[in-house]
Design a protein around this nucleic acid. Structure first.
Lengths: 238, 238
DNA sequence: AAGTAGATCTTGACAGTGTCAACTTTCATT
DNA sequence: AATGAAAGTTGACACTGTCAAGATCTACTT
């Protein structure tokens, strides 16, 4: 049986609050003298400028999301947690929705990196990569359910903004296409097979599984694992 | 090509505001003298008792959801639309979330009826029923996107409430299992095939497709149709 | 027929939310 | 040293969900 639940340490968690926001989003240049000790609160301590607010906000947001869910994330609570006034976040995010979009984007960056690593791991057979790409996707969704939700939030995709957000997201998806194209090159797929459609179908199935699982629809917690195993054995192959 | 978008009239829409709430939820007994003409507003007209408030609220909610989306649905706006004071709804729904749950439940009732009709339509071959069950599911999701979202809302499924809501929902799913069992009886499936897993997998794929489509993830509007067609031809078969 | 319990609906109030406007402080550049 | 931009602050507004207390109507008992 395939262990889907994250079991203890599974390598550095790119979405971990402290780590990710600072490492992934390379942007602000931590104040000269290196963030004085109790830098957390510019609001109550005498510091006027926080120095790293954007990243701190993202990190704290993810903390709140993971611990208390989406409904618990209000700009005011967030500001308070970071030790800054209510409206300070507006200097870094136009909107609440802009903040959520940034969180979503970061999620896609993490996921993209995960998938790239798997798909291009030449120490594995193609079939093994396929299996792992499926499992890793589900594992990501299950261990960051709220963030995963955000990543597919309606407003993000309907805006024709052409954020580089959408580009990041599509980068994720392209990994699956790439995988199936390699399958085809090796002649493993049937003639009529269409790598693009296969990838799309597999992605949809994964998305559905992830959603149903995180929403709590599956009565039996083992269902997800067994359906996934079944899918890998039988379905979505050609 | 398979027409997925609802094209004009597609029979009576069970989720239509006026119709559904009154016909599906058989409960209140429309006031004796049969709802005086301008009964809409008990608040501004002299009527103290609305007489049919629960159903009116549901109907009006669905109106708002379809027209303006989930974010536009506030209890206060709703109350005003129905012509009743802010807190009147609380006598019919414990919570805002209880209202949303009721809307979701009604959605599952509609969907359940749709699927039952298809699956037990003996004028069609099994394969034709499978196709139609898939298309009807997607059509439902696409034409009631917000309600569909609500139907899989986290809070609803995680509460161990054992609402009869969950029973209604599972009734939907069982139609697919039933379908695949009939397939198996006719010996169409392979030996190792597992009708339950097949149904679950197909449901997950449908859910994923529906979500991705309504969230606006597919760049090309035709993608949904083509992926679905591809899935019906190749995937999720044995 | 009167009266009363309970369902239904109302206003008042409160804490919480997102966000705008106007102000203050600090940073970076000339 | 001066100055404009960036970052942070308080005050204010409209809106939200929800509770408490009172008003009104319905239905049922006696």
């Amino acid at each position: 049986m395939i262990p889907l639940k994250p079991k203890g340490k599974e390598g550095p968690d790119l979405n971990d609050a402290g780590a990710s926001a600072k490492t992934i989003l390379v942007k602000t240049k931590v104040s000269k003298e290196g963030m004085r000790a109790k830098a957390a609160s510019s609001h109550e301590s005498g510091q006027y400028h926080h120095g790293n607010l954007r990243d701190s906000l993202l990190a704290a947001s993810i903390d709140i999301l993971n611990e208390n869910g989406l409904e618990a994330l209000s700009l005011r609570r967030l500001a308070e947690k970071v030790g800054v006034s209510r409206t300070a976040p507006y200097h870094h995010f136009k909107d609440k929705s802009a903040l959520l979009a940034a969180i979503a984007e970061q999620g896609f960056m993490s996921l993209s990196q995960i998938l790239k690593t798997v798909v291009s791991d030449e120490s594995l057979t193609l079939e093994a990569r396929r299996k792992k790409a499926v499992m890793d996707y589900l594992r990501f969704a299950l261990s960051h359910p709220v963030q995963y939700d955000l990543m597919f939030g309606k407003s993000l995709w309907q805006a024709d903004d052409q954020n580089n957000f959408q580009r990041t997201a599509k980068d994720c998806f392209r990994q699956y296409v790439h995988l199936y194209e390699m399958f085809q090159k090796q002649g493993i797929l049937k003639h009529e097979a269409n790598p693009l459609r296969l990838a799309q179908l597999m992605w949809a199935a994964l998305h559905g599984l992830a959603k149903l699982a995180t929403e709590g629809v599956f009565a039996n917690p083992q269902d997800l694992e067994e359906i996934t195993a079944y899918a890998l054995e039988h379905g979505i192959r050609d």
